[in-house]
Amino acid sequence: MIFTAIREGRNLLPLIGAMLLAACTGAAQAASYTMYRDPQCGCCETWAEHVREGLSTEVAVQESADMAAVKDGHAVPDDLRSCHTMVVDGYVIEGHVPAADIARLLRERPDGVQGLAVAGMPLGSPGMEMNGQTQPYQVIAFGRAGRTVFSTYN
């Protein structure tokens, strides 16, 4: 296509612009968000809605009666586990991680990080809002590089 345009002496700018737009659109849509949840848990859907709104994306929901197997399969450390697990673009998101931290992870792609986790179900974290009550919590980055505090809240 490009060689034909060159041979015919056509302006390449519209063609290159269209190709760049297609490449950028494809890259933005490439990430798929899949959340695994126990069918008995109610806060997971609220958190998924937070992610949908915060990242302007779709979140597929997969129900699993054996969440321990899902977490084992994605190497989520036992002490960082929560009620739901999401997989996005090769990363594991465990628990009530704020959408802004997911966006930062996907933007920065730190070396040695496999995922982010908020252990337990702290009040005030996304999906765990309750009458303005909050508990301090941390978002932990984990992976072959070890663990680091990614963000701190409250």
Rank of each mutant, 00 (worst) to 15 (best):
2 I>A: 02
2 I>E: 01
2 I>S: 01
3 F>S: 15
5 A>H: 13
7 R>T: 07
9 G>N: 08
9 G>E: 05
14 P>N: 10
15 L>M: 13
16 I>M: 02
16 I>D: 01
17 G>N: 13
19 M>Y: 12
20 L>T: 03
22 A>I: 02
23 A>N: 10
24 C>A: 11
24 C>N: 07
24 C>I: 07
27 A>R: 14
27 A>T: 07
28 A>Y: 11
28 A>I: 11
29 Q>N: 08
29 Q>Y: 10
31 A>P: 02
32 S>H: 03
33 Y>K: 02
36 Y>L: 03
37 R>S: 14
38 D>P: 03
38 D>F: 03
39 P>S: 06
39 P>M: 06
40 Q>T: 11
40 Q>P: 01
42 G>V: 02
42 G>I: 04
44 C>D: 05
46 T>R: 15
47 W>I: 01
47 W>L: 04
48 A>H: 07
49 E>W: 12
53 E>W: 11
53 E>D: 15
53 E>N: 15
54 G>L: 06
61 V>M: 15
62 Q>S: 05
62 Q>I: 04
67 M>I: 04
68 A>Y: 10
68 A>W: 09
69 A>E: 09
70 V>N: 08
70 V>T: 07
71 K>N: 07
71 K>W: 09
74 H>F: 14
75 A>T: 13
78 D>R: 15
79 D>T: 08
82 S>G: 04
85 T>A: 03
86 M>W: 12
86 M>I: 09
86 M>D: 06
89 D>N: 06
90 G>D: 01
91 Y>T: 10
91 Y>M: 13
92 V>S: 02
92 V>Q: 03
92 V>A: 05
93 I>E: 04
93 I>T: 01
95 G>S: 03
98 P>H: 07
98 P>K: 07
101 D>I: 00
101 D>S: 11
101 D>K: 04
103 A>L: 09
106 L>R: 00
107 R>N: 13
112 G>K: 01
117 A>I: 05
118 V>T: 08
119 A>H: 04
121 M>C: 02
121 M>Y: 07
121 M>E: 02
121 M>R: 05
122 P>C: 05
123 L>E: 10
124 G>D: 08
126 P>T: 00
126 P>N: 04
126 P>F: 00
127 G>I: 10
127 G>A: 13
130 M>P: 04
131 N>S: 14
131 N>R: 15
132 G>T: 00
132 G>F: 00
134 T>H: 03
134 T>V: 05
136 P>Q: 11
136 P>S: 14
138 Q>S: 15
138 Q>W: 09
138 Q>T: 13
144 R>C: 03
144 R>I: 09
145 A>K: 10
148 T>M: 12
149 V>W: 08
149 V>K: 07
150 F>Y: 14
151 S>A: 15
152 T>W: 05
154 N>T: 04
